[in-house]
């Protein structure tokens, strides 16, 4: 057993170091080169991964955007150009019946200013015509010039010349005229009650 162990000691004893010349440097050089290669390979992989993700993003974006343009072939019928019809305007005289002897005053068709209407009212022969002009002047003051003071004055003159019939409300009355009519009516009723 002892001899056997001695033989084992001999067989398994550490071998004397016998370095082959140049092996150490060669191994170091090769491992360093491999290390540098691995480093660049890692960088290349990272760059490739970034590029792949970028390309994938572009691809997905392009794919998700759908069709932007589509070529559609439409059959075109060859037609002979037709002459464009010319429109001619022909003046035809039309007879319009005109009411004669009407009680309503014939108002001028042209548009007058509120001041002109007021002058016409001053120059009118009868109270009814004057009242009508005053009312139109009031409307003009109210709607075109927003001159409430003159409008109220003209409406007041209209109501003074119109008498009791002028106090009745009409669909075409402005809000100011309606208000003045109501006030005049109440004043009149109130005056009667006080007198009685």
């Amino acid at each position: 057993m002892s001899d056997s162990n001695d033989e084992l000691e001999d067989l398994l004893a550490p071998k004397p170091a016998r370095d082959t010349p140049g092996v150490r440097d060669e191994i170091l050089r090769r491992t360093e080169r491999l290390l540098i290669w691995n480093k660049w390979l890692q960088r290349a992989w990272k760059a490739a991964a970034v590029t792949a993700v970028f390309a994938l993003g572009i691809g997905v974006g392009f794919w998700r955007s759908g069709e932007r343009e589509k070529v559609v072939f439409v059959p075109v019928q060859q037609t002979v150009p037709q002459p464009v019809p010319q429109t001619q305007v022909v003046v035809v005289p039309v007879v319009v019946p005109v009411a004669i002897g009407s009680s309503e005053p014939v108002l001028p068709a042209v548009s007058l200013t509120a001041g002109q209407l007021e002058v016409k009212a001053e120059l009118a022969d009868d109270a009814k015509t004057a009242g009508t002009f005053y009312r139109q002047a009031g409307d003009k003051y109210l709607s075109e010039e927003q001159d409430y003071a003159n409008a109220a004055r003209c409406y007041g003159l209209f109501l003074a010349r119109g008498g009791d019939t002028a106090l009745s409300l009409e669909p075409g009355d402005s809000w100011l005229l309606t208000s003045l009519k109501n006030a005049a009516y109440k004043e009149k009723v109130n005056a009667k009650a006080t007198d009685g």
Partner: peptide
Amino acid sequence: TGAWRLWFDTHFERLSAYVQW
């Protein structure tokens, strides 16, 4: 590579002896 060279120098002789054994 500097770190690698340090590691290599530290262990080369001992590993070489082990491999020979």
